[in-house]
Design a protein around this nucleic acid. Structure first.
Lengths: 180, 180
DNA sequence: CGAAACATGTAAGAAGTTACATGATTAC
DNA sequence: GTAATCATGTAACTTCTTACATGTTTCG
């Protein structure tokens, strides 16, 4: 992970849609793209500053109420070019999926180990809940084809997340049934 | 990632099967569990040392040839207990899947963007190759039910990786066909 | 004998997490 | 007024990667 500074490109990408504050950006990591990346504000604010120093984004201050300074960041032409270059660049490497549950499974010796059943039950609940949540979101955000076409990238990754979770759940249930 | 020191438990788990050197352990990250975790020797050696200081593993030196000192680590009772506690502990959180390709997709505006086709083609090749490789490994390592039962954890995670890759590939092909 | 693989370490720095720190605005 | 949320930052620390550094053994 400590490797390619993907956060940089993600921030550029998010700012390419519209100007946003650091706070706004953090919210997006909790919601729309939380399935695929997460970042805290303590990482986002310094990164935005670095991007501004590198002239990839620029900021303006907006006063809210009487005192509060909101700092809106937006993409510069340089930033847009770097983002475009990243998107078009090849993605030839598959990163390891750091899945703690699966790693635990690897160290289980026998099919009949008592703890296995509970472990699977917990994960089935977890992934069933996740699947349900993602499907609800899909219905809400993309009720018709119109919305899908207007925000195609978002549709793609939500659809991918749903397919992934459904498949994970299917695998869990299949293996669970074979534990006996 | 910088968070729960999973590497610690993974090393304990690997050493629970048999004693191994740091070098051996690194190889396993490249092979058996590479789908789910990766670590370099520059992280493994210091971690082993920390584990030994904490009395979770202990080591013995074996001389190979006339000079080469191989350092074999094995699990202590304390180490085995910590491993067991980790495996039995709840795994209630789903980490974000840090998938660079999917993140790129999120920033694509329209279904007809020219670059999309090439991006999907590259990923289809990549995941098709991965799927093929995993299936070959499965055939080789688990020819009959006997081997599956003797190394159940390994079977589970390889089976999971195959299911995941097949599903990813199916999703890629489905979406690719709808790009037109 | 030479190349590939085996084997073990350290150093520097980037990326990521958790905690510290502060204050304003909004909605009830 | 007060609680929840909005809003921005820094500090300390852990984890992870890349590069540096060295030497041995095995196989052809």
């Amino acid at each position: 992970m400590a490797r390619k500074n993907l956060l940089k490109y993600i921030l550029l990408g998010l700012l390419s849609k519209k100007e946003r504050t650091g706070y706004d950006l953090e919210k997006i990591f909790e919601e729309e793209i939380g399935e695929f990346w997460q970042a805290n504000h303590s990482q986002i604010y310094p990164e935005l500053r670095k991007l501004e120093e590198g002239c990839l984004v620029c900021s303006r201050i907006e006063i809210v109420g009487s005192k509060l300074e909101k700092k809106y960041y937006s993409l510069t032409a340089n930033g847009a070019a770097e983002l475009e270059a990243w998107i078009r660049s090849s993605t030839p490497e598959l990163a390891a999926t750091k899945d703690e549950f699966i790693l635990k499974l690897y160290f289980v010796r026998h099919r009949h180990q008592a703890s296995l059943q509970k472990m699977f039950e917990e994960q089935i609940d977890l992934h069933a809940g996740k699947t349900e949540h993602l499907k609800q979101r899909n219905k809400l955000v993309f009720p018709t084809e119109k919305e899908r076409n207007e925000n195609y990238g978002h549709y793609l990754i939500l659809d991918h997340a749903i397919a992934r979770e459904e498949n994970y759940l299917l695998w869990l249930r299949t293996q669970y049934d074979q534990l006996h």
